Simulated scan of single mutants.
Amino acid sequence: MPVNDDAYANGAHIPDGASFPARWARDATAFRDSLGARAQTCLRYGPSPRQSFDLFQPEGTSKGTLIFVHGGFWRLFSPGDWSHLAAGAVARGWSVALPGYELCPDWRIAGITQSIAQAVQVIAGQTTGPLALAGHSAGGHLVARMCAEGMLPVDAMARVSHVMPISPLSDLEPLLLTTMNDDFQLDAAMARAESPVHQPAPACAVTVWVGGAERPAFLDQAQWLAEAWGCDHHIAQDKHHFDVVDPLTEPDSAMLGRLLGM
Rank of each mutant, 00 (worst) to 15 (best):
D81E: 01
G257A: 13
T249Y: 01
P49H: 10
G72E: 09
G212M: 13
I67Y: 08
A222P: 02
L133G: 08
P2N: 13
M1G: 14
P58H: 02
T178Y: 13
D81H: 01
V210I: 15
D238Y: 08
P200S: 12
F20T: 14
G72R: 08
L175G: 14
Q51K: 00
G140H: 02
K239V: 06
F68P: 03
Q185T: 11
G150Q: 05
L131V: 14
Q40E: 15
F68M: 11
P165K: 11
L43R: 14
H84Y: 13
M190C: 01
D243F: 06
R75C: 05
A188I: 13
G111F: 00
I116S: 10
I235R: 15
D5R: 04
W24Q: 09
A217M: 06
I112T: 03
D232H: 01
M164Y: 05
E173R: 15
T61Q: 11
F184T: 04
Q51G: 00
W209D: 12
R32I: 08
L43Y: 06
G139R: 00
P47C: 00
Q57M: 12
A97I: 11
A86I: 08
A97F: 11
L133W: 07
N4G: 02
R38M: 10
M151A: 15
Q40A: 14
L35C: 11
G17E: 04
P251M: 03
A12R: 14
A191S: 02
P153T: 15
G150T: 07
G261Y: 01
F31T: 07
I166E: 11
R159N: 07
K63G: 00
D238K: 10
V245K: 03
H240T: 04
P202V: 05
M157N: 04
I235T: 15
I123N: 10
P99R: 09
A144Y: 10
D27V: 03
L186N: 12
T29P: 00
D6I: 10
